[in-house]
Design a protein around this nucleic acid. Structure first.
Lengths: 152, 152
DNA sequence: GTAACCCCTGACATCAATGTCAGGGTCAAG
DNA sequence: CTTGACCCTGACATTGATGTCAGGGGTTAC
């Protein structure tokens, strides 16, 4: 199966599949002409990688436990590394959510103060005094890149 | 007041203050020797910019409404643009939170399936079937950059 | 005059997956 | 043999505030 077929059947772009190979998440044999050759198992793997990425794992993180997942036809059995990675990711996500919630509350306060008047009066004290100097240990939200903002 | 003083009194780095000037958020007069010269108002402005950035606004967004904020000593009065920008940011944050919550739930499901067993059994169907192809219109979480992950 | 600070500009790096283009093959159908 | 549809590699771009370095100058106190 050629890379284009895998792309169609997994939803991943050709570019992404090549990338997964480059970072060592998948391995492809080569035909005589240099074309990559994939089989069904590779395809399932690409699908799994895509799901992990959508969950927010980076390829680097996935690499730490992907080789520790062994499939049989319909089931995947994984070793503890998988759960560990999931717990870490979960914690990171919850930190991000907490940060977002904090910011949300502050925005709401400002908006509340603004409602009902044409001009917004924002006392300095209300302007969210001293937020933590700079927060967020795990700032980025990986997973779901590639589509860039269209300037708007 | 020189840039170093402003940095100390606002918590922003010298680099950041220069950046704010470059993108047009602040204006500094120059001394004869080329040094930037700031006054108290500039300092308050830098503080406000810092707060906005911590709230998640980009400098570009801030630029759309910062000039529409007029201070008198202790109070800030702003025009509707400020509220509009805040509402947009609020909506973006809530989208991000919803996305995080979705991912959180999926991670929890996997972890739940894993609990109590040495090996994790992750049926394909459970492996979060077809998440939206690629989500997140406003992927990044701006505000709070600069401190990079220390590889961990 | 020289050390110790501070300021200036400009450029590169960071993070990470993906898009996109250039330049160049392979192959089957017409 | 040409056309069209693929495949290949390698490189640059995207996001965006900030860190950091290079190379050069100012100011002050000893």
């Amino acid at each position: 199966m050629k890379i284009g077929d895998v792309a169609k059947r997994t939803g991943a772009s050709v570019r992404s599949i090549r990338h997964y190979e480059k970072v060592g998440l998948i391995r492809a044999t080569r035909e005589e002409n240099g074309y990559r050759d994939f089989d069904e198992a590779d395809m399932l793997l690409v699908r799994r990688i895509g799901r992990m990425i959508r969950l927010g794992f980076t390829t680097e993180e996935i690499a730490t436990f992907l080789n520790c997942i062994v499939d049989d036809p319909a089931t995947v059995t994984a070793c503890p590394k998988v759960a560990a990675a999931h717990r870490l990711k979960l914690a990171a996500i919850e930190r991000q959510m907490a940060d977002l919630e904090t910011r949300r509350q502050k925005l709401l306060i400002t908006l509340k103060a603004a409602s009902g008047q044409d001009d917004i009066s924002v006392p300095e004290t209300l302007a969210h005094a001293e937020t933590s100097p700079i927060a967020l240990a795990h700032p980025r939200h990986p997973g779901a890149r590639g589509l860039f903002r269209r300037r708007g």
